Amino acid sequence: KELVLVLYDYQEKSPRELTVKKGDILTLLNSTNKDWWKIEVNGRQGFVPAAYLKKL
């Protein structure tokens, strides 16, 4: 499993997105899109802007 660090808080703006908090370490599911990465948070899957995340 690949992990990502959340660099900035992000509030979901659609049902396909997820809310994340700065400092969270989460599972990366897909990073093929350069702008939006798919991650998992508490069993939910969704997208967060790639600029808000850093691969560990």
Rank of each mutant, 00 (worst) to 15 (best):
K13W: 05
S31C: 10
I25N: 02
K13E: 08
N30M: 08
Y8W: 13
E12H: 14
Y10V: 01
Y52D: 03
G46K: 02
L5M: 13
A50G: 05
K34N: 15
K21V: 12
E17I: 04
K54Q: 13
L53Q: 00
V6H: 00
L26R: 06
L26P: 04
I25E: 03
K1C: 11
D9F: 03
S14T: 13
K54W: 10
N33D: 15
K21S: 11
Q11W: 15
R16L: 15
L26W: 12
G23V: 00
E17W: 05
A51P: 09
T19V: 06
L56V: 12
L7A: 03
L28G: 01
N42G: 14
E40A: 09
K13M: 13
T27Q: 14
R44H: 12
V41Q: 13
N30A: 12
Q45K: 09
V4Y: 05
L3E: 09
R44M: 11
S14H: 13
R44L: 12
V20I: 09
I25T: 06
V41P: 00
L7H: 02
R16W: 15
K55Q: 08
A51D: 12
L26Q: 06
W37E: 00
W37A: 02
E2D: 12
V48F: 02
K54D: 08
Y52F: 11
T19E: 04
T32N: 12
Y52A: 14
K55C: 08
L3D: 04
L56A: 04
I25D: 00
N33S: 12
Y52T: 09
P49F: 02
V4H: 01
I39F: 02
A51E: 13
L18I: 12
P15L: 09
D35A: 11
D35S: 11
L26K: 02
A50R: 10
K22D: 03
V41C: 12
L53G: 01
E40L: 07
V41G: 15
V48C: 05
R44C: 07
K55D: 04
E40F: 05
S31Y: 10
T27N: 12
R16N: 15
R16M: 15
T32G: 09
L56P: 02
E12G: 15
V6L: 02
Q11D: 15
A50C: 06
L53E: 00
R16A: 11
N30R: 07
L29N: 03
D35G: 09
D35R: 11
N30F: 07
T19W: 05
Y8G: 07
L3S: 08
L7R: 05
D35M: 12
K13Y: 05
L5W: 05
D35T: 09
P49A: 03
E12W: 07
K55I: 14
K54G: 06
K38N: 08
E2C: 12
T27W: 13
L26N: 07
L7E: 04
Q11P: 05
T27R: 11
K38V: 15
G23S: 03
E40R: 05
L56H: 05
